[in-house]
Amino acid sequence: MAKAKGKTEPVRILGSLDKGKDDVDRLVAASESDIILDFSACTFISVDGIEWLEELAIRAESKGMKVRFENIPPAIYKVFKISHIDCILKACGAPSTAIGPVC
């Protein structure tokens, strides 16, 4: 989970992401390098889950780090799409839009 010799290890989100993950928060606090979240084993995401991800991305950005989401299952990706939150979409690799989401 922690970074190994400068190389970032992805953090796997397991099952239902229905609240914030303290260990990831700690990782962001301690880490200097980019954060990669692997969603391949994520089965559900709640409103709190989305909000935590948003916060994570904002905090990382303020530290000059990047957050990247990988292996996102379509059902979860669709939640991100509908949520329409810029920093989360960016973490999914989307180009930042000029107009940007409203929320």
Binding site: F44, I45, S46, V47, I50, E51, A75, I76, K78, V79, F80, K81, I82, S83, H84, V102, C103
Partner: peptide, 17 residues
């Protein structure tokens, strides 16, 4: 208005699952 709509939008997103 923004707060209400944002809250509703996140819920709508989550509801799709």
């Amino acid at each position: 208005a923004n707060n209400l709509v944002r809250q509703a939008r996140l819920a709508a997103a989550v509801f799709t699952q």
